[in-house]
Design a binder for these strands. Structure first.
Lengths: 246, 246
DNA sequence: GTAACCTATTCACATGCGTTAGTTTTTCAG
DNA sequence: CTGAAAAACTAACGCATGTGAATAGGTTAC
């Protein structure tokens, strides 16, 4: 059930078999299925734990008073939403499903058990949280400085690599369910311009995007186009000195 | 020395006199002064603790390969930079001073001592970190959805309230040292358009900005203009149930 | 099977903001 | 006080992207 999370955390530190089992167990306690295009948590809700995305895609978003919507991040299998958010009174943004989604509720007690049971797991979860912050900073840069093609290219690079790091990419392709309207809400572009931009990227033979699948025809070209530097994802076993020996 | 941090944390939870002294001590151990417009930490550096801004303003930023720069956040007195970032191998962004700055280096040991010495302090520091994430999300929204006037208004609201929460605002005014070029790097606008935007806001009598001081003439009007909703700053004593009784 | 509705696509036109290239004002070192 | 550099400001013009509106294919509900 939580293979994607374990795979992802192992980019930071090698976990022992027992640690993997502990995560496995935590991720199977309370599992729910949610339909496509539903809210999982809504702005103003009182959170009482964290969510692990087991399957499907979700997004975090927020509406302005006048109806404009900004998606501030995508959540893919292996992602934990709002680790430790139970310190805050209420959610300041919403989380909605893009596809049908399977989530595991991680209660406060479960999380505290995991973290106190293994320093390595605790560190790995903090690593994941720090990377989530870095991703959010990168979105700020993306929206502030990159033009439409660069912005879209960067988003594709990010989500391909994130899925790959969780064992969820196949060769040069991966799932990619957002509609063009959702891509617009994530990139701050109108749907018309998202469409124009995708056409342009297709005719430059950078990507193929159909049937909710993304195929990256030339990853180097795409990364160059996006000025994508993957170091912010910290996927290079930062915590190797903590690796399990068994 | 760390009054601003203590003031800010007390928005979340009331700290005992002993806890306040402990923070005071941690923030006076290693204090340095840095000139205006210098880098405090640079992308690629290996962090070995956290920084507390005691006085002056700094910013976090990142360059794209072609020289475009995005400021991803401002740091004002009382702000901690990169709490727990020592889990990561290297900085994925830089931190530079805008004015002359006084910083206190908080070593890993000092931080761990603070957090293990008081659960309330530990929680307060995590609260601060969660709020920092929420601010980063809000910047994403700001750059993705708001036009120039709204964007600038939102930035002013944020920084006024953040300084106020640290006891660093005076009535309806506060320090505001960024140049128009720096405001452009933060809002994703050209300096020319920053200038146009400020003129517009001045003629609408929303703000006065001169001599590195921001005066907010009509906070309600400014917040309306920005569609600013302060709840993401979580300034409403979320952790009241943990308050010190002494 | 078909109505209702997303989703993708295209076109024409409008505009917010960028760019280039200045000038003026302020700051600050000496 | 003076000169040089930084910061603020202005004007003209162009383009990337938004808006509104229309079409068509695909999907889902009944």
């Amino acid at each position: 059930m939580s293979q994607a999370l374990i795979r992802k955390l192992q980019n930071f530190v090698k976990l022992s078999a027992a640690e993997q089992r502990a995560i496995e167990r935590a991720g199977s306690e309370r599992v729910r299925r949610i339909g496509a295009h539903e809210d999982i948590l809504r702005e103003g809700d009182k959170p009482n734990g964290a969510l692990l995305i087991v399957d499907g895609w979700a997004c975090r978003y927020k509406y302005l008073e006048d109806g404009r919507r900004q998606i501030v991040g995508f959540s893919v299998p292996g992602d934990i939403c709002d680790l430790n958010v139970f310190l805050l009174k209420e959610m300041d943004h919403s989380i909605g499903s893009l596809t049908e989604v399977v989530v595991a509720d991680l209660s406060r007690e479960t999380l505290e058990g995991l973290m106190s049971g293994s320093t390595r797991i605790a560190h790995a979860l903090w690593w994941d949280n720090l990377v989530a912050n870095a991703i959010q900073r990168e979105w700020t840069i993306n929206l502030g400085q990159r033009d439409a093609v660069e912005r879209m290219s960067h988003l594709f690079c990010e989500l391909f690599l994130r899925q790959k790091s969780a064992g969820r990419a196949q060769g040069n392709s991966c799932d990619f369910p957002p509609t063009q309207a959702e891509l617009g809400d994530a990139t701050g572009l109108s749907t018309v311009h998202v469409n124009r931009t995708l056409q342009q990227m297709r005719s430059a033979d950078l990507i193929t995007l159909q049937n909710k699948r993304l195929v990256i025809n030339d990853i180097d070209a795409l990364m160059r186009q996006a000025m994508f530097n993957p170091s912010y994802l910290h996927l290079d076993r930062d915590g190797a000195h903590l690796d399990a020996n068994d």
